[in-house]
Amino acid sequence: MKNTKRKTKKRGGIRPVFIVILIAALLLACYAAVQLRRQAAREADPYYGMVEVFNGDDYVWITPQDGVALNDLDKREFINDASGNLTYTGREYKASRGVDVSSYQGDIDWQQVYDSGVRFAIVRAGGMYYGSGELYTDDNFIKNIEGAKAAGLRVGAYFFSQAISEDEAEAEAKFVLDLLGDRKLDLPVFFDWERISGDTARTDGLDNETLTACAVKFCQTIESAGFDAGVYIYNDTGYYGYDLAQLEDYTFWCVGISTYPCFYYAHEFWQYSFKGTVPGINADCDLNMMFEK
């Protein structure tokens, strides 16, 4: 009798390589779908990826800068004391009140300033004219440093910069160092670059990359002489100008005209008023607060 049993071929299962390819294809499809949804969200929402912050006058939208520490001060911990002075009540930091002054304030009775509770001063060293680019010295710079120190205040300095190149920023820093001579400061020397409104300035149109490079060069030059360095930051330069990640090695002195420090990023010095009244100073002056661990 013939053997009628049929021979059949063995069927193998799905090979592992095909499973891997299938999974990879599914993952790529999912990734593409997510990207399409994100693209649609960006197109539908003009503020996608941005945060809304208070700038002292109004709420504005900014794009957060990666890698820059955020302000962790709680606005509920700021009150006016019995004398009407803005006071920090939190425990995270030690806060002290200060002023920044120039020759505009005239002759200052620094002992009265100290007796009123002010504990530090940031004094203008000079600046650069925004039209000619010439450097100038504040007439009261040395007098203010010596008077404030004699009264017991901690003292720092600032320079009104209009640098448009790293070479100019370096020249500004060296100018300050020459003015200081062998004097010591308790607080940083600040690079104060500001945009000029209402007039034509040589700084008009300066790009942000160059602006940041100028700040870094100024601070590096100051630090090379043994002083601490910092950057004075307006909302405009802080939110839409500087690459703050390149400046985090330096002290931030930020403007936030408000009853609490509203600047989005972390800062050690807060300027909260342009029209302060302080015993011993016969003109309006800027008021500040310093936060130390």
Rank of each mutant, 00 (worst) to 15 (best):
N3C: 13
R11H: 05
F18E: 09
V20Y: 07
A25G: 12
C30Y: 13
Y31N: 09
A32T: 07
A41L: 11
R42C: 01
D58H: 00
W61E: 00
I62T: 10
G67Y: 05
V68H: 05
L70R: 15
L73T: 12
I79E: 11
A82F: 10
S83P: 00
L86T: 08
Y88A: 08
E92V: 05
D100N: 15
S103W: 02
G106K: 04
G106Q: 02
D107M: 08
D107N: 12
D107F: 04
D109L: 10
W110P: 06
Q112A: 14
V113R: 06
Y114P: 00
V118P: 02
A121P: 04
A125F: 09
M128S: 00
G131I: 04
G131F: 01
D139V: 14
D139L: 14
N140M: 10
K143H: 03
E146T: 04
G147K: 06
K149Y: 10
A150N: 14
R154G: 02
G156F: 06
G156Y: 05
F160M: 08
A173L: 03
A173N: 03
L177K: 07
D178K: 14
L185N: 00
P188E: 06
R195I: 01
S197M: 00
R202A: 01
R202L: 03
T203R: 00
G205Q: 00
L206H: 02
N208H: 01
T210G: 03
T212K: 02
A213R: 15
A215Y: 07
F218C: 03
I222N: 09
A229T: 06
Y232R: 07
N235Q: 05
G238E: 09
Y240D: 06
L247T: 07
T251L: 02
F252L: 11
C254A: 15
F263D: 12
Y264I: 08
A266D: 15
H267S: 12
T277P: 01
T277C: 05
T277Q: 09
A283C: 03
A283Y: 07
D284C: 01
C285M: 00
C285I: 00
L287F: 01
F291T: 09
K293R: 15
K293A: 09
